[in-house]
Amino acid sequence: MTALTQDPAYNFAYLDEQTKRMIRRAILKAIAVPGYQVPFASREMPMPYGWGTGGVQVTAACLTPDDVLKVIDQGADDTTNAVSIRKFFQRTAGVAATEATADATVIQTRHRIPEVPLHEGQILVYQVPIPEPLRFLEPREAETRKMHELEEYGLMHVKLYEDIARHGQIATSYAYPVKVEGRYVMDPSPIPKFDNPKLGGCPAIQIFGAGREQRIYALPPYTAVVSLDFDDHPFTASKAPHDCDLCGADESYLDEVIIDDAGGRMFVCSDTDFCAGRQTAGHRGRLSPKAAGKGM
C-alpha cells in the first residue's frame, strides 16, 4: 500500500462539499431504485470525457480518508488511465492505494469486474461511456425515458434478434444488456459479457457513473440481475478458449497479446492483480520465464 499526503490546495477528493453532497443524493436514489438512471449535475473534471469523469466523480463522493483505493483499466492496475486516476486521488485525497482487490474498500474500474470475488463493505465504481442501453436503437432521449417508464423493452430483443440473424448467435460480447430485479433494463457499461454473471448477487455495492451523459445508476448488494436472451438462444458467458500463458488460470478473462510479427500471440489474464497473485503462489503458464526450467 502506498499513501501520499493530500495537496492542501484542494478540497478533500477534489470536488467541493456541495457537489459531493449532490452526487451522494443521486447515488442514494440510484441505490433505492436499482438500475434506474438518475440524472446528476456532472462537473467538469481535470481530464477529458471518456477517461472516466463519471467514475471519478462517484469515487470522489464515496471516498473517506480511511478508504483504500484500487483503480483498474480493462482489469490492469498499471495502464495509463488507472495510473492517472489513482495518482489524482492520492494527491487530492491523500488516501491509501492498493493493487490487491481484497484489501481495497473502493475500486474504480473501467470495463472489468475483478476476478477475486468482492465482499461486503466494498464499493465498485464503473466508468460508463453511454448509460442508455436502448440508445443505438432509439436515438430520442424523451422516447427512451418513456420506454423505461412503461417497461417497453421489446426493442432490446430486436438488437439480440439482429445479432442472431446476422451472425447465427448473440454476437454482443460486451455491454450486454441486463434486467435488474425484473424491472429496469440496464447497460452494465462495456464489461465483457463474461463478467455479467458476477453482477447479480454481488455482496459489494456497484455504482455506475457516466460523466458526459450526466447519469448515475447502481446495483445494491445481492441484487437480482438477469442477462437478456432468447429461449432458444440462451445467454452464455464467453471467454477466449485458452489458459493464461503466465499463470495457467483457466477460469479468468483473457487478453490476447500479439508478441511478434510472425503471428505469435499469447493470452494473459486481463486482471493483473489476480494473475500476479497466482504467479506468487507458484502457478505457471505456457510462456512463464521460469517454466522452461521445469521442462514444460
Binding site: 421489446g154 430483443h157 440473424a165 432468447f230 432458444d232 438462444h233
Partner: peptide
C-alpha cells in the same frame, strides 16, 4: 427484425 419487433414487444422470446 422490423416484423418481429411487435411480437417481441408483447413478450415473444423464442427466436
Amino acid at each position: 427484425g422490423n416484423v418481429g419487433e411487435r411480437l417481441m414487444a408483447v413478450g415473444a422470446r423464442h427466436y
